[in-house]
Simulated assay, not measured.
Amino acid sequence: MKLLHTSDWHIGRTFHTHSTLAHLRTVLDALADAVREQGVDVVLVAGDVFDLSMPSADAMTLLSDVFRSIRDAGAQIVVTSGNHDSITRLGFHAEWIRHAGIHVLTQHHSLDEPVPLTDEHGPVHVYGIPYLEPSLLRHSYLDVDLRTHEQALAFAMQRINADRAQRGGRSVVLSHCFTADVAASDGVERDITSGGLDLVPTSVFDGPDYVALGHIHGRAQLSERVRYSGAPLHYSFSETDKLRGGWLVELDADGLADVTWLDLPVPRRLVQLTGELETLLADAAHAECESHWVKAVLTDQVRPMDAMRRLQQRFPHCVALEYRPSVVAEAIAASYGDRVKEKTDAQIVGEFLAYVRNGVGPSEYERGLVHELLIEQDLREVPA
């Protein structure tokens, strides 16, 4: 049996206020093509199908279209919910659409009820663990200590492993969580709790032949059989260098046989350009970036006026701007009053300009202008 492990589609998410629906459609259409070309039997989506708990009509339409394309390509679909999903909305009509080969697993009470699949080697049981928030779960299991995500996932896997032992055969688990073996990074969907990140040890997932994880937006291999696939699109500039795609997982008669990476297209690449504004606007080396999403980091000593408008004239998809001067004035411990004591008015103006412009004092033109203004002020103050 061949499975394609994906996660974190985040249908409906925006990128710096821009809709990502068209780009995501392109990627997921390519995914359906890959299902056909690679002979994939099952597509796994390990949580965060939608970006919002109340997805728009356009987001719902995209999901329906993609599910149809994947089914037409010959694969069944197994989905579980993430922290961004509404289990009610994502799971609506789950009972009926499973007859069409689309299995949506969002309920904690059915953790040990797998999707039964078969191939020439026998049964494969696919279990889905929806995102389990301990504070919402514990009231249903009063005799179980469920204060942390580790306890919630351990409880889920205990039920799953007990069911696996009875059924026999091979097994796959989907889960949306943050494991202790993945270092915190800017691309991580964080679960902030009192005391920091609520981590789950990878050992919690001992047992199944393959564990398909979601929650972080970059691929990661925690062991041969436990992996994150990451998101199909880049959703922040911190993800620029992370590959987009999914894991192709092959099961044979004995369990996990092979895992390979499948690249998916990147409709619009991300790039960060650093330099002075005039250089970024004129440098021919940046020509290929004119069709990319662009984040500009300006290093000018004096903050340029109207920088974003000028950048967008060359880079239409410039969506982020940061001012980071290459030289920063050294911090001075003395108070402003002490620094200007016994200085002339012209020197005070010069000190102020250097302070607000990161060490760049007045130009010759500005010195002349200040001199003229001060003379004019002195003349006005002379008694008639």
Rank of each mutant, 00 (worst) to 15 (best):
N358F: 05
G361P: 07
K343G: 05
R357G: 02
A346C: 02
G337D: 09
G337L: 14
Y365V: 09
N358Y: 04
V370A: 07
Y365C: 07
E366S: 08
G337H: 12
R339V: 09
V370S: 01
N358R: 04
G350P: 02
V340F: 02
V349N: 00
Y355K: 11
G350Y: 01
S363D: 08
G361T: 08
E366T: 02
K341N: 14
L373M: 13
K341M: 14
L369S: 12
E342S: 15
G359Q: 05
H371L: 14
A346P: 02
G359P: 05
P362S: 05
G368Y: 05
A354I: 07
Q347N: 06
V340I: 13
V349A: 02
D338F: 07
F352R: 10
P362D: 06
A346E: 10
F352S: 09
G359E: 05
R339N: 07
L353P: 01
Y365P: 00
G368I: 02
E364L: 13
Y355M: 12
S363W: 07
L369V: 11
E351R: 13
E364T: 12
L353R: 01
P362A: 08
Y355I: 08
L369A: 14
G359L: 06
Y365N: 08
Q347I: 04
G350N: 11
V370Q: 01
S363V: 05
A346R: 01
